[in-house]
Structures are given as C-alpha cells and as structure tokens.
Write a protein that binds this DNA or RNA. Structure first.
Length: 259
DNA sequence: TGAGGCGTCTGTGGTGTTAA
DNA sequence: TTAACACCACAGACGCCTCA
C-alpha cells in the first residue's frame, strides 16, 4: 500500500488537481504505477507527452530518494502547502508540535511560553527562565515536520521574529497548520471547540474554571504573586494544548484519507 | 464580549502555457 | 490554431491573541 505522499502527484510540474483526478480515473494512483508500463499506457499521449512523462518519472525517482534520505525540505519547496499533511507518515518520528503563548498579537509583543512536543512528551520554555534561542534552535534543527494550530498566521511569524537564527531552519521545514487542515476535514470554530467536537478531553479544567481559559491572566497572576502554583497551572495548560495537536492531526488525516 | 491587528487560506476570474 | 489546464493576483473570510 503506497503511503499518503506516494499517492499525490501535485508535486509534479504542470500537474494540478484536475490532471491528478484524471490520473486517478485512469487507474494510476501511486508513484510506482505512474512509472510503470501501466502508467505509460494510461498517460501517453492522452494526458501528457512521452517526454513530459519521462521528466515526471525522473522527478518521482528523485522524490523517492529524498524520502529515503529523510530530506523533508525538498517537499517544502515542491508540494502545495495544503498537501504537507501527507508527509506525516514518513516523518512521524521527527515531527514536532508547537504552541506559544504571548503578551499580545502585535509585532511589539513577546513570547511568554513555548510548548514543543514530539507527540508524546512536552518541553516547555518560559520567558525569564529557560527560554533560549540556542535551545529552541537545537529542537528545530532536529525536526522534519512542524505542526501548529493557526501557526502560519500567528506562531510561526512570532517565532521567526523572536529567534532570527532559527528563521532559516523554520522556513525549510514543511509545516502543517491544523486550523486549515481541520477546515478541510469539516471542523471549524477554534481549537477548544474542535477538540470537544472530536472528543479530545482535557485533564486539567482548573484554568478554564478559574481564569476563563486565559493563559495571559495566569502568567500575570504568577508574576504578581510569585506563587509557583500559577506557573504550574500555566505549564500544564500549555502542555495539554501542545499534546492535543497530535490526536487532532491524526483525526484530520483519517478524514482526508476517506475523501 | 466585541474590536482590532495580523497573516494565511480559499474561491474566483483572468492570463499564460502546453500539447495535440 | 485551439482547447484544456495551470498559475497568478485579488478580495473576503477566518482564527489567533490581547485589550478595553
């Protein structure tokens, strides 16, 4: 069974959604089939010329080599952004899930907290404690795939501004923005609502009950009081946010596979 | 609770390119 | 030369977040 990425032809030049659909209709549904005798007969000359088919075959060879070498940055350049979810399967072990909390949404605001998860454990960085550009950079350098919720608009631009050294590396890593992937999977209405809809539960309800789900208020209370209890609550809140990204991504992928 | 700033995605229509 | 399709630009919608 071909992997998600090997069932996508949109990385090929001159192939869009219409032509891809024609390939599927012709019974060509994987890179392997595309390059086989079956692919040649189905495609040439009705869908593309022989020369173009040969060029596409070479590109698929190259893409396969990149998969074997574990080079995800190649796909960041050739694969449409809304198809980056197909890279989760081959790069699952090197995927990182990111969530940040900030002092505001403007360019002058700062990051208070960063949650970085491999899907199983979370590492939390706190401003004034352990938030460090080199530490963040070391995490990003290891990643082959980034997953956020609304990160394309919010988290990623913030991180690139805050950590200029990491900017270049972030740009090379394929990025899945769950906000838009959820929309394609028929899920809308913000992260917390979507979590409820999908059946993802939160263990710690204290933040919602006492602070209305407001991490900034929690941060300020901690700064004003110096009480570690509030800091611990905030860390747990961010950890749950970050950890819930993985089941949400896997839910969306299941839905998209069935489409 | 609504407003505002931010940046991206989606849908749409026009234009350019490719293949027959 | 023509038809089909990819690609690009633009506008509107949207969710993130904090602030008042």
């Amino acid at each position: 069974m071909a992997r998600d990425i090997e069932r996508c032809f949109l990385l090929l030049p001159g192939v869009g959604s219409v032509k891809q659909q024609r390939l599927f209709s012709a019974g060509v549904s994987s890179w392997q089939e595309f390059r086989s005798e079956k692919g040649l007969e189905a495609l040439v000359p009705k869908v593309m010329s022989f020369d173009k088919w040969k060029r596409c075959c070479k590109l698929l060879d190259y893409a396969e080599e990149k998969l074997l070498l574990g080079d995800s940055s190649f796909f960041a350049g050739v694969l449409p952004r809304d198809e980056h979810w197909r890279l989760y399967e081959p790069f699952r072990e090197e995927t990182i899930f990111l969530d940040i909390e900030t002092t505001g949404a403007s360019r002058y605001d700062r990051i208070n907290m960063i949650g970085i998860s491999d899907g199983a454990d979370v590492r939390t960085m706190l401003r004034g404690f352990n938030m460090d550009e080199e530490l963040f950079l070391s995490q990003v350098k290891k990643a082959k795939l980034l997953v956020t919720f609304n990160g394309a608009s919010f988290d990623i631009p913030f991180l690139k501004r805050s950590f200029p050294k990491a900017k270049h590396f972030i740009e090379r890593i394929p990025h899945i923005d769950l906000r838009h992937l959820c929309a394609r999977a028929g899920l809308k209405g913000g992260l917390k609502n979507i979590e409820r809809e999908v059946g993802i539960t939160r263990k710690n309800r204290t933040v919602e009950r006492i602070f209305g789900g407001d991490p900034l208020l929690l941060w300020r209370t901690f700064i004003a009081s110096g009480d570690d209890y509030y800091l611990q609550l905030l860390i747990e809140y961010n950890e749950e946010d970050t950890l819930n990204l993985r089941p949400l991504l896997e839910h969306c992928i299941r839905v998209l596979r069935e489409k």
